Simulated assay, not measured.
Amino acid sequence: MEGNLQNQSFWWISGLLLLCFVDRIFAQLKYSVPEHVQVGSPVGNVAKDLGLDIGSLPSRRFRIVSGPNHALFALNQNNGVMSVAQNADREVLCDGTKVCLIKTVSQYDITITATDCGEPQLYKVKTLHIQVSDVNDNIPVFSQNPVELYLVENNSAGAAIFSITATDEDLNENAAISYHIAKADGVKGEMASYLNINSENGLITALKSFDFENLKTFQFHVVATDSGAPSLSSNFFLFSTSFV
């Protein structure tokens, strides 16, 4: 499962892989799995990709020894296949670290050591790259929700009245958010005739002047939708109960 690293997040998982073999250890190994892939799913056949004799693996101590997050993966000592051992959630692995969440590339290290069976033993060291790609598993989250506003009567048409912002912990298109006004209650006519929202930045503006005699109160909600497939969305509620 070798993967293209462009525009995807990956971890270089730290660990130590002991082999009793040195041939082709300098070959660069890259594997890719999506986050939340089913436990037991194969990552790749490390032994085969290194050109090792499958039949000799059990006697050559072919195993993962240590390293941060190494428990996410398991290595079959009989056939050399590495598989997913635990649920891999990219955002959980980032542990809320802002740089990890927003960077296209997040990384850990796995150190591969190939050891022959001679006396004295000789070994080589190599880094194995495991790419854990982002999937759309987080909804947009608003910084404030709900909000109550006091609006100015006889305002100028086109004036900004409020700005909303939602964030998404996913990456790239999975985190690209658009906004639209979905529903309004307590208003004569369509809410779309009173308000407009910038779909890209969440800025809400008045399309016409508010008149307290005709419009005493209203409420509406904005939907923030990401661009993942399938897309995920969340609602923002805004209330206006009076004018000043």
Rank of each mutant, 00 (worst) to 15 (best):
D109T: 10
P34S: 10
L18Q: 10
S227V: 02
N155E: 00
V37T: 15
A206Y: 09
Q144E: 13
K208W: 01
G202P: 05
A27D: 12
K30S: 09
T225S: 10
A229W: 00
N78G: 06
V84Q: 05
S233W: 00
S41P: 02
F73Q: 01
V223E: 11
E35K: 08
S14P: 01
E173Y: 08
M191T: 03
G228H: 02
Q121T: 14
N198S: 10
D137F: 07
G96F: 10
G118C: 07
N235W: 02
F236D: 09
Y123C: 10
G3F: 07
V81S: 03
S83Q: 09
S242E: 12
L57A: 07
L151P: 06
E91K: 11
Y108F: 07
N201R: 03
T167S: 12
T225M: 09
L203H: 02
K208G: 00
N196I: 03
A114H: 02
R61D: 12
V65Y: 06
N145H: 06
E2V: 11
D95Y: 05
F239G: 03
D226L: 06
N78A: 15
L149K: 03
S59Y: 15
G67F: 06
D226T: 06
N45Y: 07
I112Y: 11
K188W: 03
S227Y: 03
S233F: 07
G96R: 08
W12V: 13
V22T: 15
E200K: 15
E35Q: 15
R60F: 01
F10G: 09
R24K: 13
K48E: 12
D134R: 10
S41H: 13
W12K: 14
I25V: 02
S240W: 00
A157Y: 02
